[in-house]
Design a binder for these strands. Structure first.
Lengths: 118, 118
DNA sequence: TTCCGTTATATTATTAAAAATATAATGCAT
DNA sequence: ATGCATTATATTTTTAATAATATAACGGAA
């Protein structure tokens, strides 16, 4: 038994500005879906999130950074749509890097803890 | 302006066993206070946590690991008390190590993100 | 034998977070 | 004009997390 099937360490890395969470795992997932679908509505649906919550997240992000992460348009042929800006793509990839780095940094103590779990 | 006063990354490292969080920042803080005070009641008060919640955390921890992290006694001269076991002290220090390692691992991308924040 | 401060536990109440619902606005296409 | 799929926003409802309250048990000390 090298690893216990049931056990895991999970990270929540959150970027704060004052009291507000301007980036975290939920927002990262939302932006990832948004990049694929081109629609905030579709992105929200894919992660079983209400459109309203998704929209309020985007609003907060857009006003927290020097440049908007998401550009949205309404009306038009398909009803409208939303997409990531280059700025947004960059932030998303930096966040992914943080997740990857920290997860690998934690390997040794985590193995020890795993041994201590039932 | 080297760092923005207002901004921070925060980690929530959680140890899961199935759906249950068997260790995390709250439990770590509780055990730290417990080590100092020798009383679960006092430890809870120091972090403005209800005794009931503290106790249920201890209960979950004690039944999730191969050995108990906390040993409690009731009755007696001071009414009773609780203390960390060696096993508990070890887990607490491993957790602290995870926090420290991951924070330092994240330095580079975090600096970049900080620049992007308003 | 009664008092004390604690652990131990269940039940109820409060609060905060999330979800659901509703509605307006947009602009292209048919 | 009307329909369409979306963004944008406010309001209400529901749910889940947390806190509060209550009570029992324990065992030494005065």
């Amino acid at each position: 038994m090298a690893t216990k099937a049931n056990t895991s360490v999970r990270f929540r890395i959150r970027v704060f500005r004052g009291k507000e969470i301007t980036f975290g795992p939920g927002k990262a997932e939302l932006l990832t879906h948004l990049a694929r679908t081109g629609s905030l509505n579709q992105a929200a649906k894919r992660m079983n999130m209400s459109y309203m919550k998704a929209w309020s997240m985007v609003k907060l992000m857009n006003q927290s950074y020097k440049q908007p992460l998401v550009k949205a348009e309404r009306g038009g042929s398909g009803g409208g749509g939303a997409e990531l800006t280059d700025f947004g793509r960059r932030l998303l990839s930096l966040y992914a890097e943080m997740e990857k780095e920290s997860l690998s940094a934690v390997g040794k103590p985590w193995k020890e803890i795993q041994k201590m779990l039932k």
